[in-house]
Design a protein around this nucleic acid. Structure first.
Lengths: 240, 240
DNA sequence: GTCTATACAACGATAGAC
DNA sequence: GTCTATCGTTGTATAGAC
């Protein structure tokens, strides 16, 4: 799972990871799922997740009726309810899937021993590539926060802060090593986040400019390094 | 409407502007609104808008029932429908209100004759202060795009591009004047936008750090100028 | 394991008394 | 100009045949 080897390879690994995670989710909810053939259940479950994300990101999760989901996924109402228990529980399973993916990918990306500058690059690329590969999930979990219950909301917040911490830690280390010049690493990390999120939230903006994920990653890295790398004072003096 | 004179004064002017706009909206929809006393109608309409934003930003517009709105605003179902015609039309009126505010504020902010660096600062402040003063509207119009009809969606997209253009024009001019160093002004403007939006989308993040709108504006300006101002090459060479 | 048919609650919108 | 009562529709979830 090394983003430095290019998006295509990364995407292949993410797809495998997703399949693993779906199986884990099935096992976690085995008691509640009435379908006992593991392979059938995992495949169906994965399809249900995909269709839910597709419809929800078009109409909203609230607006998606279970009938809609039944029609789009080609599974009858009755059969659907032998996989999902309830609409709320479906939401919960979907969120769980994404959280597991994020945790694994970001943990791995942060674990490699790199100097601060290259680690920042690695973290940025890992985040962008992951959100590209699982764009529907990230868009969903950003836009549907309102419909989460208390626990899911807290977990989402926790995740947001955890991912900022990867960046603030890296900035802090880079500052100490004299590579970066950052007054407030936490605030800067808080400003890096929306730049990463823009990629999966406003895709049309970049698609219409023909910018792919690797080009965006390059542009973002260039932009951030211009702001963060230690350097002499600017040539233009501050205005009065 | 000069953001340079501080948020407090700016906020005062926005409140006055909002009242004007509500009256205009009433006049625009006079035929459809059964209540004919102008002052009563404008006041009620404004309250209906505020409560709609409050509830929608908590539960989602789709999830907000008209009954909820009726209860929270203290107006009966029957009376409500003598102001709003339909739930969809209510959405439309609310969007119209915000669009008018954005257009007026940003036009004015861009009109002042300033050098590129100060104009960038002025545009950033105007945007941040406006979105602070009307946070519920901006949050709403970002999060509820899915529920817009075709026309409202197109207008929202148009607005997004228009506001990016203010920034790309300014960057382009600054590049020509030798103040900024920007390879791709459009892409850079596209990256400034999410930094502005983060302010009204993730308020809790900044509130918990005790950062107000003026402090955020200062930090953003510092961050952007570090990345954009023309300067000598960085001291740290690019890694292999 | 999957289907069709249906129960029951909540929604947007309106009618008609005051 | 405002209210209460009610209509028809749509949503989630389940029962029971296959």
């Amino acid at each position: 799972m090394r983003p430095s080897s290019g998006y295509k390879e990364f995407k292949r690994q993410i797809d495998a990871l997703k399949a693993d995670i779906c199986r884990e989710i099935y096992l976690q909810n085995k008691e509640r799922i009435r379908v006992k053939n593991e392979d059938v259940a995992v495949a169906r479950l994965s399809a249900i997740f995909d269709h839910t994300l597709e419809i929800s990101n078009r109409l909203g999760f609230q607006a998606m009726s279970v009938r809609d989901l039944s029609e789009h996924s080609g599974i009858s109402m009755g059969a659907l309810y032998s996989y999902i228990e309830s609409k709320d529980k479906l939401l919960e399973m979907i969120l769980c899937m994404g959280r597991m993916a994020v945790t694994r990918v970001m943990t791995q990306a942060a674990a490699e021993p790199l100097d601060a500058r290259n680690q920042l690059r690695q973290l940025l690329r890992a985040h962008l590539y992951l959100t590209e590969a699982m764009q529907p999930w990230f868009y969903f979990s950003y836009m549907e926060t309102k419909h989460f219950d208390r626990e899911a909301r807290e977990r989402a917040l926790e995740g947001e802060l955890a991912s900022e911490r990867y960046f603030s830690d890296c900035l802090l280390r880079g500052s100490a090593e004299g590579v970066f010049e950052v007054r407030d690493p936490e605030l800067t990390a808080a400003m890096i986040k929306p730049l990463l999120q823009d990629w999966y939230l406003k895709r049309w903006k970049y698609r219409r400019r023909n910018i792919g994920v690797e080009a965006y990653a390059d542009a973002l890295i260039e932009f951030l390094e211009a702001a963060l790398l230690k350097r002499p004072a600017p040539t233009v003096p501050a205005p009065p």
